[in-house]
Design a protein around this nucleic acid. Structure first.
Length: 275
DNA sequence: TTCAGCCTGTCG
DNA sequence: CGACAGGCTGAA
């Protein structure tokens, strides 16, 4: 799933439904999933039981459940989903059972983590190490100021697409939103960040925030697997102008949209409208 | 700073 | 059957 707007949508819902709730039980369905981490963390997950959720945080594409003594970090990878169920029997489709990774039972509801491709991550951290962990990420795309944004763009040699993909520089944007933001800004994904002029940077910054806020208000983009905690799709995909439209006519000039692999990611853009 | 590799599913 | 898909990582 999941780029900033999708994770933010989930964060808002978890905040409403999970805050101050006590964890009653944890069930792990695919222990292999946790093996990439340490084996300890698997058994330590059980220690979360009977703790209350005190806070929900998001930075970039990471979602953090903060409990009384520890913090549980989720990254949804490409196909991770966090779903809230009211009881055991609801929403038990085939898809669901097969890809179930983790179930967390709270007083009056159940939080479930599923992941088809298993690129997602779940990590248990002591609270005092949380800040260190999150500091490996660049500033969140919604938090960053124009000044900081400018400085970062000038300090890197890379193309703008690679710049945005690197979560250590700025966190939260992924393939969909980068392509959408660049198209709306009239900037080619191949442009080097250093060569952008002041005016272009200001436009890019403004559009980045606009696109993200708009996408959050539409509850994210559902291209394939992404759904919110209620299992419902977002609607921002209806406003995609370039993502998933390779070869189709540009909405501005009518030329067919170009498609290139950049940094291993399919990149769609208009070579006429973006320079 | 690239580049497989990690997984599963779907589409042509 | 191969190509491709909202992402990250660790090794060259």
């Amino acid at each position: 799933m999941p780029e900033l707007p999708e994770v933010e949508t989930i964060k808002i819902e978890l905040e409403k439904k999970l805050k101050n709730k006590k964890l009653i039980k944890i069930e792990i369905y695919q222990p292999e999933f946790f093996k990439k981490d340490s084996k300890e963390s698997l058994s330590q997950l059980k220690n979360l039981v009977f703790q209350k959720v005190t806070e929900i945080k998001r930075k970039g594409k990471y979602l953090v459940l903060i409990l009384e003594n520890q913090a549980l970090i989720f990254h949804l990878g490409l196909t991770g989903n966090l779903i809230i169920l009211n009881d055991e029997t609801s929403n038990s489709s085939f898809y669901f059972k097969k890809h179930l990774i983790l179930k967390m039972k709270f007083e009056d509801l159940i939080l479930v983590f599923t992941d088809i491709r298993k690129f997602g991550k779940i990590k248990l951290l002591e609270k005092n190490t949380l800040e260190t962990f999150l500091s490996q990420l660049g500033k969140d795309a919604l938090e960053i100021s124009l000044d900081e944004f400018k400085k970062l763009l000038f300090s890197k040699k890379r193309s703008i697409k690679g710049f945005f993909l690197d979560q250590k520089i700025i966190s939260g944007l992924g393939n969909i939103y980068i392509d959408e933001i660049l198209f709306r800004s009239g900037i080619s994904p191949l442009r080097k960040t250093r060569d952008l002029c002041e005016k272009e940077i200001e436009k890019l910054y403004k559009i980045m925030k606009e696109v993200l806020f708009r996408a959050i208000s539409l509850r994210g983009s559902s291209v394939k697997n992404y759904v919110d905690t209620k299992g419902e799709k977002g609607r921002f995909q209806e406003e995609h102008l370039v993502y998933g439209r390779k070869g189709k006519p540009c909405f501005i000039c009518g030329n067919s949209l170009e498609y290139k692999k950049l940094f291993h990611r399919g990149t769609t853009f208009c070579s006429k409208c973006q320079s």
